[in-house]
Design a protein around this nucleic acid. Structure first.
Lengths: 192, 192, 192, 192
DNA sequence: AATGAATGAGTCTTCATTCAT
DNA sequence: AATGAATGAAGACTCATTCAT
């Protein structure tokens, strides 16, 4: 059944299968046979398209990062220009579906942990880390002096990631309402 | 030459070696031969003392949790009874050495991620998670109405864990001063 | 766009690519993807033209044998009819370019070694082996009694192959002058 | 069945199994499972004792070289001090059992061919190559001027290796009588 | 108490081949 | 004529565990 132009289809198939496997089995227990099985293809195809397991893992993390970036951008596009609204949009983006469904959170956490010992994943994670911080700081600086804006950005970033981490670790599904509310209060407090 | 009373010594040796290995190699790349080598013993001894790799991993996480508990308790013992002081003590405990040295943070993160797929680790992590929240809530309730205290506790717990997570992921050593300051401001804000 | 008359071009392209790959990577590490890549074609084409990897390998060895045969015939054609001159011509042929460039010698050696376990290659190698011997014996028999001619032929063949083998194994390029001189002395000695 | 002090026994077992496998299957087709199976052990043990397939291959070649060295030394010890006798002893050593049984010759050829692309094997092979040459030259120099001795040594070395190579490639068992006789004649010729 | 020899399942990767287009 | 997608077996290697000593 070989066909031409399968590359994008197969790549997405395999990335989806990777997310599913990491979610269900955990990062350490995810083997390429598991992934191939879920994707309904043979193991050899992974090397064919991604050059190996590492390539697939990295592509998967890149996909998640891009997804998050898209969601945030989309929500920001729908609000007016006030810093408060834009900050809130960033918060909402970080707690929107599918960022807060259990599977995604588990995969994120797995990636973060493993990024500590995989240089390429580390690089990707750093980009993400810095992106959140600088987005927040940019908005705070419209209103606050530089140093204060830096602190506010760090605090809000920590608050977001903290809710996020605790959500990933706790049993049961997450209700994003409370995190959003508390972040919102934190923003108003800082902008005051 | 059989030696008597080696058990506690060997156990601690092996736990230390595990921490060192997980820190340096990451959770997924830590094998029992690596651990045994660092401890200067044979691999067989691990099964002998801990029943297997899992047993050692769990004992190591239990050890970390106990350490954290001890530090917090110690700091709390040194402050007066005001909720603000006690909350701040908890914060300080969570950002005290060795909780904030890079090695410990990497190990914690590795444990958290793997706890998602190891029931026993998950149980331990849940205890820790709940302990922080209830400690904070207990103090807030001395001053705030129940629902408000609950929210304040959740916010502060997220702030602590968020700083903590971002610290683990960022390159370079961590300066606990800013997290403590921002947590302190958050506490004052909530108690107002 | 189907092209006509590509067969001889493609076949030679692939044989050249095979020689290049075996020379650079060694026999055991030469894969058809490597060959296809060097030839600038797809892997499928190899099966199409040679029926599989084995077919290509055999065709390549046949090509080398033919090359050697041509060179020897050519040099023999240019000398007078004396046995000494004709024997020397055979020697010169076996040490002429490109037989003595490093790449060719490495490929020959690789083929010989693998011929021990590939019947078809073995057959080709035997033909070559016998051809050298009988060519030499034929000349020696013009001058020497049969048994003596047989021995002289075996000795000279060994001398040629020995220089050749040692040349293949030693580091650096080969100077064919000394082997030719010593073979020449050997011939004179035998013919005396 | 684990016992202590198994290392030398197992190592020799595995080296013997490697020789048997390379002889029967060829270098390229010799897998560690084949070797382990012949030795009657599990595959893991190879990594345990030799660090991997490469380590075993190298140890095996080292073993062969040592064997050859021992045989030559032994035969040299039994002859008087005349250069002719000593040169003949070296020749005899190179054509003595087990150097000339088919299996050993095939293994040697396989090693030589693969040495072209394995640095460590190449190093071992170079040592062997140089050893033969310098042993021969040393004896010739007792009688001949330096340059002539060098040439005689190169010629005799080529003759030895050439007989040897042709013996490895030809079908059927080898009779070392003729090579020894012709080498002997060559020696006498040179010393004259 | 402690060792380290031994196992065998499991992992990732490579590869020759096949085949629809 | 030519491609390259896809397969699945086979390869080397790692690893947690067991066990005789």
């Amino acid at each position: 059944m070989p066909k031409v132009g399968m590359q994008p289809i197969r790549r997405q198939q395999l990335i989806d299968a990777t997310l599913s496997a990491v979610n269900e089995l955990g990062f350490g227990e995810t083997s390429i046979s598991q992934i191939a099985q879920r994707a309904g293809v043979s193991t050899g195809i992974i090397s064919h398209y991604f050059g190996g397991k590492n390539g697939l893992i990295e592509a998967t993390m890149r996909y998640l990062l891009q997804q998050l970036g898209n969601v945030v951008a989309e929500i920001k596009a729908g609000v007016d220009d006030s810093p408060e609204q834009r900050l809130l949009a960033i918060v909402r983006g970080n707690f929107s579906t599918p960022q807060t469904d259990k599977a995604a959170m588990k995969v994120w956490l797995a990636f973060w942990a493993s990024s500590l010992h995989h240089p390429e994943l580390h690089r990707l994670q750093q980009v993400n880390h810095y992106r959140l911080h600088s987005n927040l700081k940019y908005e705070f600086m419209k209103v606050l002096p530089k140093q204060r804006a830096e602190q506010a950005a760090q605090g809000l970033a920590a608050l977001i990631d903290g809710f996020w981490l605790r959500g990933a670790l706790v049993s049961g599904e997450i209700d994003p309402a409370l995190p959003i509310q508390l972040c919102s209060e934190y923003i108003q407090q800082q902008l005051k």
